[in-house]
């Protein structure tokens, strides 16, 4: 099932715990927190695109889309850096002659950046499921108009 690390930007406080956790786990951080104009924090990491742009130019086949997910094989990486050019998010980093990118912490139950996030801004989800949370949040805000005491007497209410 293709999953990725997503961020609920309204919850991010820019504390950089995700960076530190990733660095602790992988020596270099594969997620980086950018603060836009000193006001809006945005963690950026590999989006695990479903039709990735990075795989196309990869000459050695190190990056490929297989079994419904983006696979990476560091052995085959030549460090040519074409994927860096292709990636629209700047999520791949060249280090020690090979590419470093988010591999979703395969040994952990959930990626460390998600586990450490103090505000639960980062989360793992399937792409189709997380719109639901946002819709539910909106429903919470809107449902007041459905309160019978307010809606009573409205025309057409069943």
């Amino acid at each position: 099932m293709p999953t990725a690390v997503y961020c609920d930007l309204s919850r991010c406080i820019g504390c950089r715990a995700c960076e530190l956790a990733c660095q602790r786990e992988n020596k270099t951080s594969r997620i980086s927190l950018e603060v836009v104009e000193g006001l809006a924090p945005v963690p950026v990491s590999c989006r695990q695109c479903e039709t990735p742009l990075c795989t196309a130019p990869c000459p050695g086949g190190a990056l490929r889309y297989e079994n419904g997910r983006l696979e990476y094989d560091a052995e085959k990486c030549t460090g040519c850096g074409l994927c860096i050019l292709a990636c629209p998010f700047g999520a791949a980093v060249l280090k020690g002659g090979v590419i470093e990118r988010c591999d979703f912490c395969p040994e952990k139950e959930i990626p460390v950046c998600v586990a450490t996030c103090p505000t639960a801004a980062l989360f793992c989800a399937e792409a189709e499921s997380f719109g639901k949370n946002i819709r539910h949040r909106n429903v919470e805000k809107m449902k007041k108009i459905l309160d019978p005491s307010i809606a009573a007497g409205r025309e057409g209410r069943r």
Binding site: L9, E50, P88, R137
Partner: peptide, 25 residues
Amino acid sequence: LCIGCWACSMVCNYGVIGRQKEARV
């Protein structure tokens, strides 16, 4: 053109961007 990165659904305030399973878009 869609690459299925889901940045759009991350920023959508209404949660109304869905996913087409087979086409991954």
